[in-house]
Write a protein that binds this DNA or RNA. Structure first.
Lengths: 219, 219
DNA sequence: GTCTATAACCGGATAGAC
DNA sequence: GTCTATCCGGTTATAGAC
């Protein structure tokens, strides 16, 4: 058996927490209840998770891995840029769908610049880099072309775009997130057209200007 | 004297809170410290503000009023659309500048769809409506023109744009928010050009499509 | 009926023994 | 690694003062 006893206990606590979060919501779930449900003491729960929020970080890691796995077949087989991007975005929405009820609370902590859970923080770097690389592959291994400077920025740009979609989804209460689906359809169409246009000589100065702005903003 | 004793006490508590938030940040400021600094008991502070978060909502109201006041002279005198929008956006950034340190908390609560502090909530409706009306005036009383359908949507669109800028500003750690300034300059240029282009016959189908999407998303 | 105060409750987090 | 005991701060209950 590879997993140590500690790893098992840790997993038991996280499992208990996610069950309770889905059942009662984040705020109404106490750390005492998580500990009891996992069969450990309160202090012991804090030995494995330094705070209640850090349970959320573990949750992120889990859905991120699920998303990567769900994308793999699409990225293997499909070569059309639009379909690849569409596949990855739809997979994302499907992966997070079960958690929409309390997603607001989960992503709430992520929005605080001081918090290590915020997607731009140092603590989130590994997951963020992996996610950007995913979007890099969406374009790079497709049959689409773009000016070099733009191609270099696309992983970051698409990742940022995907964060915006998630932000909209959090506030979207339509059945089956239909409005978000619609937004994704329309914006992907826009992105594909913009990337195609970017190669035309009359458009390139605009692209250059936009990329310079992006570079400044990241600074 | 018009203000009742209660209103004065309320104002004193809010003043004390904002001073402490600026000095130590939101999390590290306790309600006990706010009460003491305002010279009232803890229970009394809760008589005027039902929760610590509701101090944030009061803060919104206050900066909103300051922003309106700061915009008035510009909207009176200036007729050029670009300069009006520029003036209103710069005034916004100046109004909120002193609070950058704890701004993260603002967006944190704002990102939670359940929270009454979220800018899309019912509780925020009055301020939101006033703010949209402000952006309505920026365009309506300027010398710029746009197709009717677009003109109708502009208050909402500009307000949403301004929320996006604030979101970027929250994460912007550059000195004097230089990066946000740059973003505002560039995006205002873009907006002004897009509005001007919107009247050209070849562009109008695109405008129609975009507006239909906006209507769906709000729907 | 408006305002103010004190005491207690609850849950996130920590200290330190084993 | 695991526990018990405790702290700390947001929040509430409630009693009384003006």
């Amino acid at each position: 058996m590879k997993t140590t006893k500690g790893e098992q206990t840790r997993a038991r606590i996280l499992d208990a927490a996610l069950v309770l979060f889905r059942k009662h919501g984040y705020e109404r779930t106490t750390m005492r209840a998580v500990a009891e449900s996992a069969g450990v003491s309160l202090g012991n729960a804090y030995y494995y998770f330094e705070s209640k929020e850090s349970l959320i970080q573990a949750f992120y890691g889990r859905t991120h891995d699920q998303h990567l796995a769900a994308c793999e077949p699409i990225l293997e087989r499909e070569k059309d840029f639009r379909k690849r991007l569409e596949g990855v975005m739809k997979a994302k929405l499907q992966t997070i769908a079960p958690y929409h009820r309390f997603a607001g609370v989960l992503f709430k902590t992520a929005a605080d610049p001081q918090s290590p859970l915020n997607p731009f923080s140092d603590a989130s770097r590994p997951v963020r880099q992996e996610a950007k690389e995913l979007f890099g592959r969406v374009f790079r291994e497709s049959n689409a072309k773009a000016p070099n400077k733009l191609a270099e920025e696309l992983p970051d740009l698409l990742w940022t775009y995907h964060m915006g979609i998630v932000l909209y989804w959090i506030h979207d209460d339509s059945p089956r997130a239909r409005k978000t689906q619609r937004l994704v359809d329309e914006t992907i169409d826009l992105i594909v057209k913009l990337v195609a246009l970017s190669r035309l000589p009359p458009v390139r100065p605009l692209v250059t200007r936009a990329l310079r702005l992006v570079a400044t903003l990241r600074g």
